[in-house]
Every structure is written in C-alpha cells, then in structure tokens.
Amino acid sequence: MNIKTAALTGGFNDPVFQSQSVFRKLMDGMARPGSIHHVEDAMGQPEPLGAAAGAIALTLLDHETSVWLSVGLAKSPAANWIGFHTGAPITREKAEARFAFVEAGATIASFGLFSAGTQEYPDRSTTIIIEVAEFDAGETLTLSGPGIQRSTTISIAGLPEVFQRLWADNRALFPRGVDAVLTAGSRFLCLPRTTRIAASRAGE
C-alpha cells in the first residue's frame, strides 16, 4: 500500500455508534483513572499509530481541534490519515494543540510547551495521547485522586522515564494542566490532571 492509499483507508464504518462507544469508554476512563479499556474494531490506522489512539482520534478530532504529532507520527502516513478522516488541522505549535499524539518510544522532554489552559479557562489545555509498549508489565504505579476509591495500581511498560516527574510538575499546576491518555495497541487508560502517581515498591 502506498502512502496515499494508507491515508484513505480505514476509519469507522459506522461513525455514529462506534464513536459513541469509544467516547463512553473514554468518559469512563477519565472518570476512573487507571481503568483499562479497549477498542474492539480495527480502524485501519497506519503505523505507528495504535488502534486505540486511532479510535480516539476518530472520536474526538474534527476541523475545530488542531492536533500536534510527534516526529515519528508526523513523518508517517498516520498524519495524512488523521487529516483525511477527521479534518483536524495539524499544527507544529504545541501550545495551539487541543490534542497531541506521541508514538511509542518517542522522547518527551516536557509538557510545558503544551497548553495548560489559563487560570480562568483551565479547560483550554492539551490532551496528550501517548503510546506505550504494554500494560500489565513493567513498572507498577499507584494512582490516587478523584475517580479512584482510595488508590489503584497500574503496570506500564515503555512509559518514558521522565514521565513521573513531568506528571508531578503538571499536577502542581492544578487547576491548569494537561490531561493524558496512555494507549497500548487496542487498549488505553486515562490520566486526568487530578491523578497523583507514585511509584510502588515491590511487595507493597
């Protein structure tokens, strides 16, 4: 498949109901941080975009939401795929992006250049969708905050090392701050800005 056809194939075959279904999982995910959800249908999204990330793009993006892509995604057919299926303008300016997509293994230096919203309008912040290697493996983290009864643990392999420090900085900005969705293939979990993350030591 050449680059052009890769951009045109896939998408939702039943946009009304598929987007509703994905949205409900996202809503549940944001309301219950750390809970793992998965998308059932293949979206035909080109590499390195994952199935869950592709479904989230199809569900939330349109011409009103500018989107920022990490280098690997920007250079891949995924960029055209997102543009073609959602109509979202792709921006190079992180601060303008309503959504940002980061492919697995890409370096994240900071969340600081993304929009954290303003103190008056903290909702005007970027939602970052980050692909990781897998869940239920790798480092175990303890989450707490709104949406979580006491605390919950998640295991994530392939989360950038700096993530926890960046997240603590982000948490400190509240009510400003970015919100994150971590995707691993067809699975995803949400981390709203309210969620506190602590590393769990083995045996805890």
């Binding site: 949205f23 996202l26 809503m27 944001m30 309301a31 569900t59 939330l60 939401t65 309503r98 903290p122 909702d123 912040s125 939602t127 709104p146 949406g147 009510p175 919100d179 709203p192 800005r193 309210t194």
Partner: peptide, 11 residues
C-alpha cells in the same frame, strides 16, 4: 464530548 472529558478532569 470534549467538554465533558475536560469537565471530568477538572471536578
């Protein structure tokens, strides 16, 4: 839907 997700993130 985008508004709802942000609303949940900022209780």
């Amino acid at each position: 839907r985008r508004a709802i997700l942000k609303a949940i993130a900022i209780p």
